[in-house]
């Protein structure tokens, strides 16, 4: 593959991936409003388009045409930069996440992701760990007490839960023996006794999955751990002073992060694009892995929304105690036991 072809293919893939991600973000918002509405015995959005399907579009137009307020007391450079930082890091992390096998289109053999790197997981973790700057700086630069408290909470919470998140993944890494997301998925192909898939969650990593789930809720600032933006006490937390498109950027960043977390969970614990795909014509067989991947992500996002509609919010000291005194020891214990089993088996 020559350099120009490589650049062309990469640009096409970036555009397509961004398009898919932004559409997914918009429709995750729609899904959330719809599902939470039904959980609370309401209808959710119904007016714009059939089933309210055009609601995200209407919301986007509304955000664009709203007045972009710049409060007089803010620290301007960081106030403007913070939402961009949050959104950029949220969108970038999708670049190394594979959504299917290698494909050959028009004689070009290429992976179904923007780039296939052998430390993919570390890159995702690194980029998402930088996302905390957007939240923290937004809280600080807004120069308001609610924002500052929200930003402080977010900083402490995200750094604390990142440790449990990282440790919960190490068990999977030990079993796969690689940081490459593609190899981790390949290690989960096949079945036990012909019907139980060899996903990591069925290979004894169910505790790790639970830890990952909890830590992921905290990392993305979602209920039950949405203390940084707790409406009842902090107005809106770190984005209290934001409006129009800047607020929308935080909003999009949050949902993009949710999708990234769902992708990681699917790749690491739920077998990625593996699924029963041994039927149908060749074209169907080529598309099916991507379909299974999407189904798993949808299920994970649905779980997210379900939890949001069900659980109340933690108190802050409970959140910290849960993270440090329960999740972290559990993650370490899980890591030790997994390592022991792998060592004994070898």
């Amino acid at each position: 593959m020559t350099l120009s072809v490589f650049i062309l293919v990469s640009v096409i893939k970036i555009v397509v991936a961004l398009g898919i991600l932004l559409t997914a973000v918009a429709y995750t918002v729609w899904l959330e409003r719809k599902v939470v509405g039904h959980i609370q015995n309401r209808w959710g959005p119904t007016r714009v388009g059939p089933f309210g399907l055009l609601q995200p579009l209407a919301d986007g137009v509304k955000f664009i045409f709203k007045e972009d307020l710049l409060p007089p007391h803010v620290y301007k450079p960081l106030y403007i930069a913070a939402p961009m930082i949050a959104l950029i890091f949220a969108l970038t992390s999708i670049s190394v996440i594979p959504i299917g096998n290698w494909v050959t289109v028009l004689g070009i053999h290429t992976p179904l992701e923007i780039t296939d790197v052998n430390i993919g997981l570390l890159i995702v973790l690194g980029i998402t760990s930088l996302g905390v700057y957007g939240v923290a700086l937004a809280g600080w630069s807004s120069n308001s007490k609610y924002s500052l408290l929200g930003g402080l909470r977010a900083g402490a919470q995200m750094v604390s839960y990142e440790i449990s998140l990282g440790l919960s993944l190490v068990g999977v890494l030990i079993m796969a023996g690689s940081f490459n997301l593609r190899e981790i998925v390949d290690a989960q192909s096949g079945t036990f006794w012909g019907f139980i898939p060899r996903w990591n969650i069925f290979q004894g990593q169910i505790v790790a999955f639970f830890i990952y789930l909890m830590a992921a809720y905290a990392e993305t600032n979602r209920i039950p751990f949405d203390l940084p933006e707790a409406e009842t006490e902090l107005v809106a937390g770190y984005h209290t002073e934001y409006s129009a498109m800047k607020f929308a950027m935080f909003f999009m960043a949050e949902y993009a992060n949710m999708i990234t977390v769902a992708c990681l969970a699917t790749l690491l614990f739920l077998g990625g694009w593996n699924g029963p795909h041994r039927f149908g014509p060749p074209l169907l067989q080529a598309v099916l892995p991507v379909f299974w991947f999407a189904v798993k992500i949808f299920a994970f996002l649905f779980l997210y929304i379900w939890v949001r509609g069900t659980l109340p919010r933690f108190r802050y000291d409970q959140l910290m105690a849960f993270g440090w005194k329960f999740l972290l020891p559990l993650a370490i214990a899980n890591l030790v036991i997994t390592a022991l089993i792998v060592a004994l088996r070898a």
């Binding site: 690194g126 760990s129 930088l130 905390v132 700057y133 923290a136 700086l137 809280g139 600080w140 500052l148 930003g151 402080l152 900083g155 402490a156 995200m158 750094v159 990142e162």
Partner: peptide
Amino acid sequence: AGAIMVLFVFVIM
């Protein structure tokens, strides 16, 4: 960048 500097920013805040 993701942990130590966040700690710095946190303390500054």
